[in-house]
Amino acid sequence: MPVEKLRMVVLTSLMAALMAVGSYIHVPIGPVPIVLTNLFVILSGLLLGSHWGIASAGLYLLVGAIGMPVFYGGKGGFAHILGPTGGYLFGFVLCAWITGFASERSPRRLTVDVLAVIIGSLIIYGLGVPWLKVITNMSWSKAWLVGMIPFLPGDALKAGVAIVLARAVRPMLYRQMQTVSTLTPTLSHQREREKEQ
């Protein structure tokens, strides 16, 4: 496996671990708590792009499904994914992909990052609130009131922090990627060499 790909595999695992750590920093205010997981979901999309971003969110779900205490408040297990907050968990996967996809178009522009983060955050609620409504038999108005409105100010703050962190970390990440690609032969280089031989 080329080192660049191996590096992305390890980086994806790191982002999944950060999502798990983010779930421990939470405030239980009702059926849906305030957690830092979505900050790292957005960050994974911004840093890794759509392909690896969705992989990191999916990996986070898998680690939780096998029983590790990585969901909010140290919960874990497959049954938790099908609980009231399951929609938000699946929303994370879609959010990472959408954020990554939007951010990939022009990674150095702030407006693109802001737009990507807004769309990504809304996607989480787009999946989470209907799921919450179905599981708990709430009315639509109550589901939006309990499952979305209280989190919007916090989400704006988290989105801001995610953009600040992404813009601070990206140069370092790209520098290391360039170092790796100059030090090690890429797959295309290897193919070219094989053709020459």
Partner: peptide, 18 residues
């Protein structure tokens, strides 16, 4: 194989980040 590696790495990173 890749998923297995990633899960074990995630658990390792989880404790290391803490």
């Amino acid at each position: 194989r890749r998923i297995g590696l990633m899960v074990s790495l995630t658990l390792r990173f989880f404790s290391r980040i803490l």
